[in-house]
Design a protein around this nucleic acid. Structure first.
Length: 114
DNA sequence: GAGATGACGGGCT
DNA sequence: AAGCCCGCCATCT
């Protein structure tokens, strides 16, 4: 009975959605960071895959998740990348000349003194 | 049970 | 600086 693997109850993806949902507007997190927060620092790929299932009308701010370089990859969807950038800019997130975000400034850290 | 997929990350050339 | 390759992990067929 002690083996209450509640984690198995929800899929890794569901945990990703919940975490991303906690990201406040105007801040961003990286795929790798989400993976770390979920307990799997090497599951950055799975994190991106989880967001891949999210429709545009989802209540999960998927656009607040960027790659480790603070940029938008969307490795094969340039259009989605443009939408993501627009959404972030709408939240006062500044993009640098190289189209990347200054993570030192916008990266959100959970349970942070803020 | 095994193989294939994929919104990543890091390292090497 | 840019591009390519490998590895990692979770889910699906």
């Amino acid at each position: 009975m002690t083996g209450e693997r509640a984690t198995s109850r929800k899929t890794f993806y569901d945990r990703v959605y919940e975490f991303v949902r906690q990201v406040p507007a105007g801040q961003v997190v990286t795929y790798g960071q989400v993976a770390v927060e979920l307990g799997s620092p090497a599951a950055a790929r799975a994190v991106g895959y989880a967001l891949h299932f999210l429709p545009g009308n989802s209540d999960v701010p998927w656009w607040r998740v960027v790659n480790a370089g603070g940029g938008i990859s969307l490795r094969g969807r340039g259009e989605a990348a443009e939408v993501q950038r627009r959404l972030l800019e709408g939240e006062a997130v500044e993009f640098q000349h190289e189209g990347r975000i200054d993570l030192r400034r916008y990266r959100w850290i959970p349970e942070s003194p803020g």
